[in-house]
């Protein structure tokens, strides 16, 4: 599946977010937990799948190869996509404000 600007999966979003700082494998999994406030514990299989797909789509690129270890970083294109997704999510949240308002009324 090539990324064509539609909504991202949660895994894609957090990997992009974590790759604002170049990172690799195990540490990347940690920083994903960090940026998601421990909410996301991404398995290595999911992470690998997301990385190889996003690399193909040009959202991230290899920053360094050290033996079997590959360090990735977000590309300009990735930054744009992340920004777009962020705005999309933000408006989603804004649109959902009525839920909280509804809750307040019931109290």
């Amino acid at each position: 599946m090539t990324y064509s600007g539609g909504p991202m999966t949660e895994a894609m979003y957090y990997v992009l977010l974590a790759l604002v700082n170049p990172n690799h494998g195990y540490q990347l999994m940690h920083s994903i937990s960090e940026v998601s406030n421990e909410r996301i514990k991404m398995g290595p299989g999911t992470l690998y799948g997301v990385l190889s797909r996003m690399e193909k789509d040009g959202l991230i690129s290899l920053a360094e190869v050290d033996g079997r270890r590959k360090t990735y970083e977000i590309t300009q294109e990735g930054k744009v996509a992340l920004r777009t997704e962020y705005n999309r999510l933000k408006s989603q949240i804004a649109d959902g404000k009525m839920i909280e308002e509804g809750e307040n009324e019931n109290e």
Binding site: A11, I40, K41, M42, P44, G45, T46, G49
Partner: peptide, 16 residues
């Protein structure tokens, strides 16, 4: 150890 796949939708791509 964490599960290999924590996202079913992502895992479906490995099977495509």
């Amino acid at each position: 150890a964490p599960e290999l796949h924590t996202d079913s939708a992502e895992q479906s791509f490995t099977i495509k």
